[in-house]
């Protein structure tokens, strides 16, 4: 990896330069919190944000997107083009950078998804370091660090960013738009001090040991009934999750009934009809079974395929859940057998 010291005051110049070639999307303040949104001016970029309401997946796997347009009479596809807009996602925290790598396993592995792939191929990622808030637990999964999955990663070392440069395009853009300078040993020492402060700042302690065993051995535990009694089945946990990728597909007809669109939308395994088949048989018809499945899949199902858990510890579901069901609490329940 190549490194560069980029003074913080040069970031607006970098953003301005990027904006001449790309749609630049980054964290901006909105209604008292932050969202990833297109920047209309470099000053809107808030690299001091703590978290965003929705994760970055929206820019690769939108909450609703047209897969294809069709004609009804002859059952023919008339358009299945993909979105090749050139974008930069500027300011992703390590959790969100890592979440995209987890999404990649699903959408870019066997049978690659052309819609996701086109957006991923045409989007540069600029990451930025953060400090944990009270809901963060990325350290539990090792997703507090990121070593790939970005073009440029900016680590805050005071007046400057210690920039890791991962791609040719990232290097070209840094060369073109910022002066910067090479790193020194002092810079690396500052980077290490900053990393130590970051690691020490976590307040959640999540004991992830032996989760696959516990998920199977305690599959019939009453913790799931207790959690199911609390769950509102609203699906908010899935919507705000940077790694939840489940979707629904449905056809929408135009007013003339002659043409239409096949649309996919985010779905959630917490919704009652998610596992229902013909004649109304439902493989998970209780909230308890659906809460359990969400955790079972994230900490074991996905792990069994890709050797990583499907969670990056961003804490968004902790904020979103009105029933206080969240990974630290569920993992505690699995470890102790008690729902606290």
């Amino acid at each position: 990896m190549f490194f560069r010291i980029i003074p913080k005051r040069e970031i607006p110049e970098l953003v301005r330069g990027l904006a001449s070639q790309f749609h630049v999307i980054g964290p901006v303040a909105k209604d008292g919190s932050f969202v990833y949104a297109p920047l209309s001016a470099p000053a809107e970029l808030r690299l001091d944000y703590d978290t965003t309401l929705l994760p970055a997946k929206e820019w690769f796997f939108p909450s609703s997107e047209t897969l294809m347009r069709f004609t009804v009479a002859d059952n023919v596809v008339i358009d299945d083009s993909v979105d090749e807009t050139k974008r930069v996602l500027f300011g992703l925290h390590p959790c969100d950078v890592n979440s995209l790598l987890l999404m990649d396993n699903v959408f870019l592995g066997d049978n690659p998804d052309p819609y996701y792939k086109a957006r991923r191929d045409n989007t540069l990622i600029v990451g930025v370091s953060c400090m944990p808030n009270e809901h963060c637990f990325c350290n539990a999964w090792g997703t507090d660090e990121t070593h790939w999955g970005f073009d440029i990663f900016l680590s805050d070392i005071g007046e400057d960013y210690y920039a890791s440069i991962r791609s040719v395009m990232g290097a070209e853009l840094v060369d073109r738009y910022v002066a910067g300078r090479p790193i020194t040993d002092d810079d690396t020492a500052a980077f290490q001090r900053r990393t130590a402060e970051f690691k020490a700042a976590f307040t959640n302690d999540v004991d992830t040991s032996q989760l696959p065993v516990l998920l199977d051995a305690k599959f019939d535990s009453d913790i799931w009934e207790k959690l199911g009694e609390k769950c509102l089945a609203c699906g908010a946990c899935s919507m705000v999750c940077p790694t939840c990728y489940c979707f629904d597909v449905h056809d929408v007809l135009e007013a003339d009934q002659l043409t239409g669109c096949r649309v996919r939308t985010w779905d959630s395994c917490q919704f009652k009809e998610f596992a229902e088949v013909a004649h109304g048989h439902n493989f998970r018809d209780t909230r308890a079974s659906r809460v359990k499945y969400r955790y079972y899949h994230k900490q074991w199902g996905y792990l069994s395929k890709f050797e990583r858990v499907l969670c990056v510890g961003c804490g968004r579901c902790t904020r979103a859940c009105k029933a206080q069901i969240n990974p630290p609490r569920v993992v505690r329940a699995l470890q102790t057998g008690l729902v606290d």
Binding site: D110, N111, C246, Y296, W300
Partner: peptide, 20 residues
Amino acid sequence: FERRMKCGIGKCGHCGVGHQ
């Protein structure tokens, strides 16, 4: 096994059975 399916290619998540 019969399960609900949307995509058929391991992405939409509907046909999850155990860890597969």
